[in-house]
C-alpha cells in the first residue's frame, strides 16, 4: 500500500479583503497524491492552477483548509519552518529555469545540499550522480549563460533532485523549451518517475506535456473539475486530455 505524499483537504484561497472585492482563487479543493505518482494539474488561464501549486509549495498560504506533505501539516508552520521544509522536502522546476547566473552549474546543483549542511566532500559525489542521471555531467563547470535552454532546464531538474526531496513540483517546466527539448525533458521526468519512484507534480497548460503524467487533475474557476487516469498508451491519453480541454472550452463559451 502506497502512502499519500501530498494531501489537500478542503483548501480555499481568497484574495482581497473581507467585505471588499473578494476573489476566490481556490474553492474547496481536495485531492491526494500517492508516493511515486506523476500528477499533472491542468486548467485554463486564471483557473487557479498556479495558486494551487503555490500553496502546495508553501510559497503562499491557504485561507482555510489543510495541506499535508509527507504527513506534515504545512498550513500552520512559521516562515522559517516553511523555508527549512522547502529546502528539505521539495524540489522545484520553474518555467524560466531560475538558475543563478552567478554560479556554475555544479554550484547551482549543489546549493540545496549546502543549505542542508551536507559536508563538502559528499556534495561532489552527489552532484555527479544526479548530473549523470540527467546527462549533463559535461556541463558542470559552465555558467548558465553558456548553455542552451534545454540544458538549463535539465540543470534545474538536477538541482530539484539532488537532495532527494519527497516531491518535485514543476511550474510549466516545458513552457520555455522547444518541442525537442521539451520531449527530452519529459522523457527524463517520466524515467525518473518510473525507475527511481520520484513523485512529481506538474502544472501545465500543454496537453502534450500533460500526456506524460499518470493522472491529471483539471481545475476550473478554482474548483476541481475532473480527474483522468492514464490507462493505455500515451497517444490515447493525449486524445483524452484534448477531449476534456475541448469540453472545458465549450462550457466556457
Amino acid at each position: 500500500m502506497k502512502s499519500p505524499v501530498v494531501e489537500v483537504c478542503n483548501v480555499q484561497k481568497v484574495y482581497g479583503k473581507k467585505g471588499g472585492n473578494q476573489f476566490k482563487a481556490l474553492n474547496d479543493v481536495s485531492f491526494s497524491m500517492q508516493e511515486g505518482e506523476f500528477v499533472g494539474i491542468m486548467g485554463p488561464s486564471g483557473s487557479g492552477k498556479t495558486t494551487l501549486l503555490n500553496v502546495i509549495s508553501t510559497l503562499d498560504q491557504v485561507t482555510s483548509g489543510e495541506i499535508k506533505i509527507d504527513n506534515v501539516d504545512i498550513t500552520d508552520m512559521g516562515q522559517d519552518e516553511l523555508s527549512d521544509f522547502r529546502s528539505q522536502k521539495l524540489g522545484f522546476i520553474f518555467q524560466d529555469f531560475n538558475l543563478l547566473e552567478n554560479m556554475t552549474i555544479a554550484e547551482n546543483i549543489a546549493l540545496p545540499l549546502y543549505l542542508q549542511g551536507t559536508p563538502a566532500k559528499n556534495v561532489d559525489a552527489k552532484v555527479m550522480t544526479v548530473a549523470k542521471r540527467l546527462g549533463i555531467e559535461e556541463l558542470l563547470q559552465k555558467y548558465p549563460a553558456e548553455i542552451s535552454g534545454g540544458q538549463k532546464q535539465r540543470s534545474a531538474a538536477a538541482r530539484a533532485l539532488v537532495h532527494e526531496p519527497t516531491v518535485i513540483l514543476g511550474d510549466e517546466p516545458t513552457g520555455a523549451l522547444d518541442s525537442k527539448n521539451a520531449t527530452s525533458l519529459l522523457e527524463t521526468m517520466k524515467d525518473l518517475n518510473d525507475r527511481q519512484n520520484v513523485s512529481i507534480m506538474m502544472v501545465t497548460h500543454d496537453a502534450y506535456s500533460a500526456s506524460y503524467c499518470q493522472r491529471i487533475i483539471f481545475i476550473q474557476d478554482g474548483k476541481l473539475h475532473k480527474e483522468i487516469h492514464r490507462s493505455s498508451t500515451r497517444e490515447l491519453f493525449y486524445k483524452e486530455i484534448l477531449d476534456v480541454l475541448a469540453q472545458l472550452g465549450t462550457k466556457n463559451a
Binding site: S57, L59, Q79, D80, S83, D84, F85, R86, S87, Q88, L90, F92, F94, N98, L100, L111, P112, L115, R159
Partner: peptide
C-alpha cells in the same frame, strides 16, 4: 529564487 527553494529569510 533562493527564497523559493527554501533559504530562510
Amino acid at each position: 529564487m533562493l527564497r523559493k527553494i527554501g533559504v530562510r529569510r
